[in-house]
Nucleic acid binder design. Structure first.
Lengths: 210, 210
DNA sequence: ATTAATATTAACCAATTAGTCAGGATGTTA
DNA sequence: TAACATCCTGACTAATTGGTTAATATTAAT
């Protein structure tokens, strides 16, 4: 019990510092890339001395790994799932809405992930190979079932998943570009709803669901 | 005439070296990011001594700028345009096909661009602000004209452009992930045609053009 | 108060990096 | 051949980087 109490208290400090560090690190990695983000710049952003960063994380690559894990977990949790219960229309609608909301609310998460993949997914090969491949197979089978059942038109399920991914993540990864083109400083709640409406509309119609 | 001849000859050596360097640099910048790509690594890839690289380009940032310009020019030239002459169906079809082909044939170009935007478009702010904004406005107006004319359903033209951009570029930027999920080592010509067919099909139907 | 574990950080170091430069090679023109 | 310009590169430097260390501070339990 006393040992429990101790680990809990020290754990709290640990966790609190680590969260602060990981948040700063995520920002730096997005802004500067892996190599461009220095331990010092992460320390500055976290308002901690550099040596303190390296007390909590053995080295820079460990920080990056932690950021990556942390981020993927949050992302996966936030985007929900495509479930068979409610038919293709509701399922796709819900999935698009969840992904768009995540993109607008946590663009950094999507960006970290995007940069990792663009650069060759050195740290994520296994993740894509096992977890994602499995997920896509499963959902593709579900779409195929709906297609065979005549509930939606015959489109390639795997590429449909890629389409939904790309179209939704785009608003996170390319937010700078989109804001510039739209001549806005920030996104408003109304932009989010408009994007959800637009993407649902066009993709559902594309799938013969409207 | 003799001076002309001279500049042409020396120019040839210059251009030949610069092309080699820029190609190596583009690869390094994609693989390692701006900071991660070292002048030495570019030199190694170009099979030239480091000092030779810095003889042709004053410094690392100049190399990056040259790569960026070079790449954007090539990309813009390759994706063609959306022209009013042939109506929305043919226009969108052609644009999708051109973008998908560019994505598969020059993924590095798209990747360089994507990384730049994700990191905040420090070097491209003006490009997006002037050139791209103008382009999007123009094309949006064209789509709106088709919509008002009853030639396609009422979807937001600007977001339609974003959708086509994201869906097509995805195959360049995320090629690693896509190949892993599709369990392939490389893309084949047949993959390219399949993607073009899929995206044309679903987007055109989404626009009420099928 | 004592002990022991944990937390903190200034100072330091070895390695890497971008960029310089001086001297030499190569080619070109007259 | 001589004069000139361009091209090339090994060797160097100053600055930055990731990471270590050793000494100090804080906290918690007995």
């Amino acid at each position: 019990m006393s040992s429990d109490n101790q680990t809990k208290k020290t754990g709290n400090i640990r966790v609190k510092s680590q969260v602060k560090i990981l948040s700063a690190a995520r920002t730096e990695f997005v802004l500067q890339g892996y190599r461009g983000a220095t331990v010092q710049s992460i320390a500055d952003r976290a308002e901690l001395p550099k040596a303190n960063i390296l007390y909590y994380f053995k080295n820079k690559e460990n920080i990056y790994h932690a950021v990556l894990e942390n981020t993927l977990e949050m992302w996966d949790q936030g985007i929900g799932d495509i479930v068979p219960d409610e038919g293709p229309k509701i399922a796709i609608e819900k999935f698009i809405a969840a992904k768009v909301r995540m993109s607008f609310n946590h663009p950094e998460a999507s960006k970290i992930y995007a940069m990792e993949i663009i650069q060759g997914a050195q740290h994520l090969k296994d993740y894509a190979r096992t977890y994602q491949r499995q997920w896509v197979r499963e959902k593709a089978k579900l779409f195929q079932h709906w297609i065979d059942n005549g509930e939606m038109v015959n489109v390639d399920p795997v590429h449909l998943i890629f389409l939904i991914w790309s179209a939704t993540q785009h608003y996170a990864d390319f937010d700078t570009q989109i804001l510039t083109i739209m001549n806005q400083a920030d996104f408003e709640e109304h932009d989010v709803e408009q994007v959800i409406a637009f993407l649902s509309d066009i993709i559902l119609r594309g799938c013969g669901l409207i």
